[in-house]
Amino acid sequence: MKVVVSSTGPELSSATDPRFGRCSYFVVVETESMEAKSYSNESRTAMGGAGIQAGQFVASLGVQAVITGNVGPNAARVLSAAGVKVYTGAAGTVQEAVKNFSAGQLNQTATATVSAHAGMGGGR
């Protein structure tokens, strides 16, 4: 199964990023072979609508699931329309997150787990 993990770095050993729309990298992992390919997140510094852009990008990768810490309302809407399942609560490295996902330890969600702008920091 092809999944994508929001990450702070491009490697399997990189720490996961709890934010979806504003994470640094998206690491696409084939769960059986643990083969990985990473993409820098272009919408990370977007003024607004980062979750929407990231959602479209991730959907275009043809993944079946997103593994992340939290997901906001706009990203959740895009991912749900695209039929991409969202699993939240990822922690540790990308590799560990994928293992936890495969072991069924992450929660699937159809709705946002945080409010809009939660990934922008600065108390917004």
Partner: peptide
């Protein structure tokens, strides 16, 4: 502003 998204056959 990211107010439009294309997902498959839909525009959000």
């Amino acid at each position: 502003y990211g107010a439009l998204a294309v997902v498959g056959e839909e525009m959000l």
